Structure formats: C-alpha cells, structure tokens
Simulated assay, not measured.
Amino acid sequence: MNKTIKHQLKHRSIREFKDQEISKEDLNIFKEVIQRTATSTGVQSYSVIRVVDKENRKKIAEVCKQSYVEIAPELFIFIVDCYRNNEIVKEKTRKSYEQAYDMEKFFQGFTDAALASQNLMNAIESKDMGGVFLGSILNDSKEIINILKLPEYTFPVLGVAFGYPNQDPMLKPRMDMDLRFFEDEYKIFDNYLDEIKDYDEEMKTYYDLRQKDKPLDSFSEQLIQRFENTLEKRTLILNVIKEQGFDFKLK
C-alpha cells in the first residue's frame, strides 16, 4: 500500500494545531494542487480565498461557532465563482448571457470547489500536516459573503483550516460500505436499524476530543439530533443563492 492511500485511510479531522507557520514553498505547492484539480468542462468556475486578516478570522469563527477557526495557521475558503467567467465573456462579446449564472453553472462551480478542497486535504496530509473541513461556514452564508466581499454570481462552499497537528484523535468509525456501495442500481434495505446495529454500538466507543469525557451517542441518535436541531439560516440557503444572482428557473 503506497503512502498516499495510507494517509487517506487514516484521515482524521484535526482541530488543534501547533504554533508553527506553513512555509511559502508548501503554500505554493498547495496552490498548484488546487490549480491542477479536475474541473467540469474546463471552465474552472471556482476560486479560493486565503483568510489572513485577524478580524475576518474572528468573524468567520463566530459564524462557524468554532474557536479553532480563528487561530488555525491557515484558512482557505472555497467558493463558486461564476463572476469571473461572466466578466470574461462580457468583455469579449459586449453581451451578458443568462447561461452564465444558471443552475448548471452553479453546480459546476460547487462541485469543482468541493473537488479542489479534497485535493488540497490530500496534499496537506501528504506533508504530515492535518486539517478540518468547515461546512460550518454555511451557518450564515450571507454573513460569509459580506465578510469576504463576494460579488454576484459567487457563493461560499466549504472552508479548510489546516496546519501541523497538536492532537492525535481516534480514527472515527464509519458505516459499513455494504450500505453505501452498490452495483448497477440503488439497494433498499428492509430494516436500516438492523443493518446499522453494530455500527451504532461501535460509534458509542468513539471519543471526540471536543468532548473528551464522554463517548458519542449512537449514529442513529446523532441523526435524530441533527434533524431536530437544524439551523434556520441553513434552511434558507437557496434564498441567499438567488440573492447572489443565480437563476434556478424553478417552476
């Protein structure tokens, strides 16, 4: 098994980092990895914002409700970016096309941003660093847009905080792939609680370093908590996307 796969198989979210800067050389390597990530139809409709400003870091940490976001050595925010390509076409043709900000372009950019963030994480871990994905920037997507001064036809997707690990968390249990990997067609099970019975028990042996004194609840209980405690601003994300100029042509 090669080194890349070994890193991938032991992926863990790192939330506490050493007070150690990442070299400019490594940052440039990470930028090149992002640049070379596969992109839908080659249009590269995403961008990345490296957040250095301390005040902006503080504001983003407040949105995420995660203090480590403020003090992590590096923070990259990946965004859908259809603004740039729209401007290129406008300058070239003196025209504006509705297709520049339709549903297809939005999801192209969203997918590209997600792929690039995972590619970055692979590179981070290959350098014996660690990081954490921050879907929590969507706790208040409108505020993130304001903080980063995002123009129309852009939208935040995901954050990645990273640096040299100062913790050694347990490898978090995962659901059996028989429930998530199918051939030819989607498989529906008669009783999902029976299928995840062992996984439910295994999850209760995992200690999250954010709550060191107690193991997690079973997976099924965690799902219930997630469904019962949905953040209202997350349920309104589609409205924010529309305010950013994207036209989903919903009937």
Score class of each variant (00 low, 15 high):
I88E: 06
L148D: 05
Y164V: 07
G163I: 01
F78C: 06
V63K: 01
Q8F: 10
Y101D: 05
M170I: 07
S117W: 03
K92S: 12
E74T: 13
G163Y: 02
T93F: 07
A61D: 04
A100T: 07
D19L: 12
G135E: 05
V69W: 01
M121G: 03
T111M: 10
N56I: 08
S136P: 01
H7K: 10
L158W: 01
F181I: 06
K6Q: 14
I145A: 05
E32D: 11
A161L: 04
S117A: 14
T235D: 15
L193K: 14
Y97P: 08
Y199P: 02
G131W: 00
A61K: 06
R210H: 12
K3V: 14
K54W: 10
F76Q: 02
K95G: 04
L231R: 14
V240H: 03
Y199V: 09
K6I: 11
D128A: 03
F219H: 08
T235P: 12
K105E: 03
R94I: 08
Y206D: 04
I241H: 03
E125M: 07
E221L: 07
D128F: 05
T230A: 15
N122V: 12
D140P: 00
E32H: 04
M170P: 07
L120S: 05
Y46H: 08
L148K: 05
R226M: 15
L75V: 11
V80W: 01
M129W: 02
Y207K: 12
F181W: 13
N2A: 10
L115W: 06
N119S: 15
K65E: 07
K90S: 11
F155T: 00
Y206I: 09
Y153P: 00
Y186K: 11
T37P: 13
R84Y: 09
G245Y: 03
V240P: 00
L250V: 14
D176I: 11
Q211C: 12
I71M: 09
G42K: 05
K10C: 09
D140T: 01
Y153F: 06
Y46C: 04
V63M: 00
I22Q: 05
D26V: 11
K3D: 07
K3Y: 14
F30S: 02
S126Q: 05
E98Y: 13
I237W: 03
I188H: 14
R84I: 09
L231F: 12
P169L: 02
S141T: 04
V69D: 00
N56L: 11
E243G: 02
